[in-house]
Amino acid sequence: MQYLLDNFFSFTITGLTIGAVYALVALGYTLVYGVLRLINFAHSEVFMFGTFAALWVVMLLGGKGGGSVGQVIFWVAMMFVAAMAMSGLIAVLLERVAYRPLRKRNAPPLIALISAIGASFVLAELMGLRSRVASWVGLDDNLRDYVRNSRNNAGMPTIIQPQPIFTIGGYHVTNVDILVIVGAIAIMVVLDQFVKRSRLGRGIRAVAMDPESAALMGVNRDRVIQVTFLVGGVMAGAAAVFYMLKIGITRYDAGFILGVKAFTAAVLGGIGNLRGALLGGFVLGLAENYGSALVGTQWKDVVAFVLLVLILLFRPTGLLGESLGKARA
């Protein structure tokens, strides 16, 4: 306990950093659940594709450590563009191929769940076998650096050298920590406003509240669902960039554990609730770190999930517990 208190700020800041990534991915689960009452288990793969898009664009642009400020800003901006585009695209494709046909036939929710799990495997294995995919289309020579060792870790150069900006309680808060935490919160504020104020956001809320009435009022349901997947995917893309800046290494199955954690964060905060996802992500990130400090790193998942169960015992709808359709959006 004393140990945790001595290093309180260190565990807190690093917990918030990974929590921010959880929160952004959790948004995708929460948004889709809000409008469709469906857990999109393939969302973890949407995130994973984003990490690779971010990695590849840095490789393509020759990003490396020690670039000038202008270069670094350009690289990071391109990471965002590539990862958000890739994740958004995968999320929309997923909806078209794995969910929409089922919805059209009024398949029961369980079928959609199986479809989600299947899509998750297909996407992960496609990335894990990308060297073969490349060789089928005859591009393996051109793309060698991008596809080789396709089942191994793929590492990115450290384009932002972490520099301590200020010190709090003995922990040097770095520029990367600040970028991740502040960036994630900023993105979530924008999303919150988008859902609250924009026409499309109103549509999302309307469908979440009552799909049939929304359709009667002239809301195009398919379009709203597509936009929801797109927005969730773009958020996962942003999470992927922060993940690559902080962790810097990805793999074809990197989405799995992170996806489970993000889903947990969504449930913890109250699934279907945007602000709940944010809160759930941060709480989970902190709980993991404090748990590691108190009882050892190998126990961090145990601590995090015991906390989840405890919170759900007392608040079955999660910390904030309101759905997307309600006024708080």
């Binding site: 917990g15 990974i18 990197a254």
Partner: peptide, 9 residues
Amino acid sequence: TDFSASVTK
């Protein structure tokens, strides 16, 4: 993949 707790230790 995230070793922040170990790093702090």
